[in-house]
Design a binder for these strands. Sequence first.
DNA 1: TCGACGATCATCT
DNA 2: GATGATCGTCGAG
Length: 217
Amino acid sequence: MTAKRAESFDQTVLPLSFFLRPAEDVARDLLGRLVVCRIEGVETAIRIVETEAYLGIEDPASHAWGNRRTKRTRTLFREGGCAYVYLIYGLHNCLNAVTGGEGEAGAVLMRAGEPTRGASEMIRRRGLSEPVRAGAIAGGPGRFCQAMGIDRSLDGVALNSGVLSIRAGGPVGPDRVVRGSRIGIDYAGDAVAWPLRFGIADNDHLSRRMPQQDRDG
DNA sequence: TCGACGATCATCT
DNA sequence: GATGATCGTCGAG
């Protein structure tokens, strides 16, 4: 499948008030939206197809669990509408959108997306060569950031800025949304089972298959 | 200052 | 499907 051109989606920058809601609501509503990033004059855009919600101080899977305020998590506690970028496994950057009011520490992790603009640049950043399989460019939080050139220097950047912004894109209806449990948080006890992972049904660019798709094989 | 571990990815079988 | 890579962050002392 050829990726739709970014120009075919609504390029309106979402207002920061979009993020001043519970992380769960924002995570679902971010599906189909565009992340637009301009690094060193090169603009790339990705349509979000998979997210995870982290609920903040009451969520054992969140970095902010138990009101844990450290140098790293400082950004998480800010008012919604800015980026929280952190390094995982000493290797990979992960992009989150901070949600809710100041001190809530809600966040939405961008897990996977579909390139819509600057695909050739993203392929180069990922060290791939064309043609590439669906999901190879931005199917996974680490890949997503590498493709867009996002690193911790963007931690705390507003999501309506010239460097990084979330655009209206083409939101998906409720019938196209599938949800399941989050990934890679086995340490989080009961929270492992919380259905806070959201994806677009039958999308080729998901990082892993969503539960409903497993039935079809 | 030190030890343990992690919201992952690529490679190998 | 299983496993090794690799280092910043956190908490204890």
